[in-house]
Write a protein that binds this DNA or RNA. Structure first.
Lengths: 220, 220
DNA sequence: GTCTATATTGGGATAGAC
DNA sequence: GTCTATCCCAATATAGAC
């Protein structure tokens, strides 16, 4: 593994574990057993490192949230896929969600790219909900689809921050992220067709179980 | 007005206008035409100033969100009262919401007080929704009240942050905060009894109008 | 590519005079 | 209470040898 990649990997790990604001370039270098100067040979500055991580992030989002064909969208297996993807991205890039505004504010170029990805996600999510309406899974009034998807994106984007604010310990657990996923389902629940109650109950039960704190000590 | 109070007022204003992270103690002093040393005569440090602002914040919350008697809760006028109070606190202390995690993380004592107030709010909000259930206004399944109130608090607490992330300009407008209030109603809408459709529509229309950008240029 | 040593910066905070 | 002057510190970033 090239030094440049090792730096990115170490940065992601340390950012996630200790918070981006608490990890300096010196920490990253020390963690890898290289000098600060060496790190600056590979990256212009800290933002440059974050930008590399961000590329992985958007890659992931684009792969995980590509729309599926109409038929498929009605399958609970696909719902699991999407919801798991939400969990995964929240966990894998939690440092980013934990400091979203700081990071975006200090790097306008990154902010612009962020907005572009968010726009794609918004479009895809709205299309998905419309498709689920068509497939008789959901019954969301048309004019509510846009604001509802916005609330859902907002919920996912700031669930990590919310959880950090709710606890004195700066570490977030996997289980609280599953609780976030369960909240997504909660907000959609009133719109599910009654015939889908069974499938919905299965999903809710799953993510609630994953979100119960007792599952956490195992560090699954 | 005593210097100490002037400092707090100036800090709140500058924090709201430029973002807490971008306002140094020197800026505050310069804005008031006093010396940095003078500022430090009145406050141990910057956190100390924020703490004073936070006391105003909690004062406000406690006054605005005290529970009302069961009967009253069914009155649309009371709903307006609560929703306007949400708007007001988001606007008046938007710097705090914009930087919640940074501020809490660097001051554990403040964080503890924050958690205490949040706990009060959670209890009051749950009680309010239960009362609205009783008054035949809402029909929220009992087990959903707690998670739903959590999502609502989360929505309000991070709406400002969300809006900042959604725009390249670091200023937030009053209208986007009204949009946030409208989202609160949106999430509750599925649970409203049908007979209350009229009142609900009035509320939604009001906050949507306030949230429309065309109302903003007037800086109401 | 990697190192050591160091320059730079800027905000937080204090000392001591007035 | 208020001022001026200054210290302190930590993180970012660079210079130049190896």
């Amino acid at each position: 593994m090239k030094t440049k990649d090792r730096i990115v990997a170490a940065a992601l790990q340390l950012f996630n574990e200790r918070g981006e604001a608490n990890v300096t370039t010196n920490h990253i270098a020390a963690h890898l057993g290289i000098s600060p100067g060496n790190l600056y040979y590979h990256f212009r500055n800290k933002n440059d490192i974050i930008h590399c991580i961000f590329l992985q992030y958007t890659d992931h989002l684009r792969k995980s949230f590509t729309p599926v064909s109409g038929q498929e969208s009605a399958s609970p297996a696909v719902w699991f896929h999407y919801l798991d993807a939400i969990y995964y991205v929240m966990w894998e890039f939690r440092f980013f969600y934990a400091n979203l505004n700081d990071i975006l504010q200090r790097d306008p170029a990154l902010h612009q790219q962020y907005l572009a990805v968010q726009q794609e996600l918004a479009v895809n999510l709205q299309a998905l909900l419309r498709e689920l309406n068509n497939q008789q899974v959901l019954a969301i009034p048309d004019e509510e689809i846009e604001p509802l998807t916005e609330v859902l994106r907002m919920l996912v984007s700031f669930w990590v921050s919310y959880q950090l604010a709710q606890s004195l310990t700066p570490r977030i657990s996997q289980s609280v992220l599953y609780q976030g996923v369960a909240r997504v389902l909660l907000l959609l629940k009133p719109y599910f067709h009654l015939e889908k109650g069974r499938e919905l109950a299965t999903l809710m039960a799953h993510y609630q179980a994953m979100g119960s704190t007792s599952s956490d000590p195992f560090h699954k």
